[in-house]
C-alpha cells in the first residue's frame, strides 16, 4: 500500500518503525541529489543525507504538519548543506559517483566531461541562485514551496531562477546540445 508522507509520519509517530523506513526509502534519493547538486562532494553528500534523516528521526515525534513534509525535509537538508559548505573539504571528483552502467568507454568519458562541466557551472552560481535551481529543477518545487524552504518571498525566488538559468545558458553555451522544439 502506498501511503502519503503525512500518513507515514502519523504511523511512525504512533510507533510504527517500518513507516519511518518507508519515508527514508522514499526520500533518500531526492535528498542526496539535492545535497550533491548544491555542491557537496560524494562523501559529504552521503554524510549529509545520513544527518538529514537522523534529524528527521530525532525531531519526528514533535513534527506537526504545518506545511508539506517535503518542505520541512528540504529545510533541514538546506541547513545541513549550508553547514557542510562552511566547513567544506575539497570537493570530490564527479567520477566518484557517476560512472555506472555505460559500456562505451569514450561515450562514458564524454558524459563524465559534460557532467563535470554542468556541475562546475552549477557550483559557479552564487549560493542563493544555485539553491533555487536545485529546488526547482531537481525537486520540482514551485515558488511557493521554495519560499517556505528558503524563507524568501516567491517573487524574489522567481527573479533568482530567471537570473540563474540565464547564467547557466551563457556558461554552458558551448556544451549545449542542439535542441529542436518538438512541439512547434
Amino acid at each position: 500500500m502506498d501511503f502519503t508522507d503525512q500518513a507515514l509520519i502519523r504511523r511512525w509517530q504512533h510507533g510504527d518503525a517500518a513507516a519511518f523506513e518507508a519515508i527514508v526509502r522514499r526520500w533518500q534519493g531526492p535528498v542526496a541529489r539535492f545535497l550533491a547538486r548544491y555542491g557537496l562532494g560524494a562523501e559529504q553528500t552521503a554524510d549529509g543525507t545520513q544527518e538529514v534523516f537522523l534529524r528527521v528521526y530525532r525531531s519526528g515525534p514533535s513534527y506537526e504538519p504545518r506545511a508539506t513534509f517535503s518542505t520541512w525535509l528540504f529545510q533541514i537538508a538546506l541547513n545541513i548543506a549550508r553547514d557542510a559548505a562552511r566547513r567544506r573539504r575539497p570537493t570530490e571528483r564527479l567520477e566518484d559517483y557517476d560512472a555506472a552502467g555505460d559500456d562505451d568507454p569514450s561515450a562514458s568519458a564524454m558524459a563524465r566531461e559534460s557532467a563535470t562541466a554542468v556541475q562546475q557551472a552549477l557550483l559557479a552560481l552564487p549560493e542563493p541562485l544555485r539553491v533555487v535551481v536545485v529546488l526547482r529543477h531537481y525537486q520540482g518545487m514551485n515558488f511557493e514551496e521554495m519560499s517556505q524552504v528558503c524563507q524568501t518571498p516567491a517573487s524574489t525566488l522567481k527573479s533568482r531562477f530567471a537570473a540563474a538559468l540565464e547564467r547557466l545558458r551563457v556558461s554552458l553555451g558551448t556544451l549545449r546540445p542542439d535542441f529542436e522544439e518538438s512541439e512547434s
Binding site: A32, L35, T45, A46, D98, A100, A115, V118, V133, P177
Partner: peptide, 9 residues
Amino acid sequence: QMLDSLPPP
C-alpha cells in the same frame, strides 16, 4: 537537458 544529464548520486 544538461541539468538532467547529471547522474543521481
